[in-house]
Computed example of a mutant assay.
Amino acid sequence: MTIVPEDPVSIRPVGVVVSDFKKVSRDYDYNKESMIYVREDLASALIGLEYFSHLHVIYYQHRKQDWLELVGSAPEGASSLTIPFTSEPACQGVYSTRSPARPSAIGSCVVEVIKLDQNCIYVKGLDAIDGTPVLDLKIYIPHYDSFPLAETPLNWCKGNELITTSRNLHWDTINVGLTLGLRAGAKAMRVLGISRGEALRAEVAGGHFFAQGVEGATGCSELRGNMAFKKLHTSPGEWQLSLVGKDEQVQIRLRDHIYSGAAEVLEVGEAVLFASIQKSKIG
């Protein structure tokens, strides 16, 4: 059996990030420029770096906990090893994400080198915030570092509007929200006593795939003009569906819960899925 070393490794930073990016955020503008201030005693180690267009930057995620709190990665059943999937009531293992919350707290980024001025490296595209300790630098060589045929799951890092999301679905990895939408839409139709295509309109608030599930179940769609969709990057506790029939309407609110996969959504009872179901007369 292979024994993994448990003793901590001590690394002295080689520099620090100087950037206008000072707050932990979900978003970062990769067109922004920042500077890496390298220790003065290492200045000679930078000779020749200006002839390379790109650079690997290895850094320490000193504000990892702030990011975990921002994305709310401590819901029921989750931990720092699992990260909430954007707009999905499900989690991914941190090693299948680009999350700035690695167990080792080591981050990395490929940046464009703008210029070298003594021990200051001006770069574009560094996703580390101001004050981040830099642990190492390594030149980027396309022949060794670029793999054009490398594979990633469809939709892994796409932000699509509903019109395109419904046509780019990777069922194996992004399906919890869609399954919740199917169950919510089916329940709403049962409450109203109608079939698919008979609802006059739907109002949906939640993730893209939740909206697509409602679309599949009810037949209401933004493409047909009878669905109003509000995108929410929140936990499912704020997701809801309002479905309007001829004489009645129903509003369904989801319960805040993190699911392991679509199978769990299909198997659990409605008491787990729905926080409230309210039917009312129209007019």
Rank of each mutant, 00 (worst) to 15 (best):
G15S: 09
G15K: 07
Q61H: 01
I106V: 15
V14S: 09
K22N: 03
M35Y: 02
A90I: 07
H54R: 08
V71C: 09
S87I: 07
L49R: 02
Y51S: 12
G72S: 03
E88S: 12
T86Y: 15
P75D: 07
G15A: 11
S25W: 04
S104P: 11
V14W: 10
V17S: 06
E69L: 11
R102D: 06
Y60V: 00
Q65K: 14
P89N: 08
L81W: 12
T86I: 15
P100I: 11
K22C: 05
A105F: 08
Y30H: 07
A78L: 11
V94W: 15
E50C: 00
C91W: 06
Q65S: 14
Y60S: 03
Q65V: 13
V14H: 09
V16K: 11
I36H: 00
I58G: 03
T82Q: 02
V14F: 11
R102L: 11
F52M: 03
P84A: 03
P84K: 01
E88V: 08
A101Q: 11
G93F: 07
S53Q: 09
H62Y: 12
V17R: 02
G77S: 00
K64M: 08
M35S: 07
A105Y: 08
A74D: 15
D66Y: 04
E69N: 14
R26M: 09
S34Q: 00
F85P: 01
D41R: 01
S19L: 06
V17A: 12
I58A: 04
M35H: 02
S53G: 09
F21R: 14
A45N: 05
A43V: 09
T97C: 12
H56R: 03
I58W: 07
S73Y: 05
G77D: 03
E33G: 10
R26C: 06
S96E: 14
S80K: 13
S87L: 11
A43P: 00
A45Q: 06
Y95G: 13
K64H: 07
A101W: 08
E33N: 08
V24D: 01
K23R: 12
S108C: 14
S87V: 10
P84D: 05
V18Y: 09
P75R: 12
K23S: 12
Y60M: 01
I83E: 05
C91P: 00
S80N: 10
A105L: 09
K32N: 08
E40G: 04
K22I: 08
V24N: 02
L81S: 13
E33W: 03
S53C: 03
V94Y: 15
S104E: 13
E40C: 00
E69V: 06
A74G: 14
V14P: 10
Y51G: 13
V18K: 15
Y37V: 14
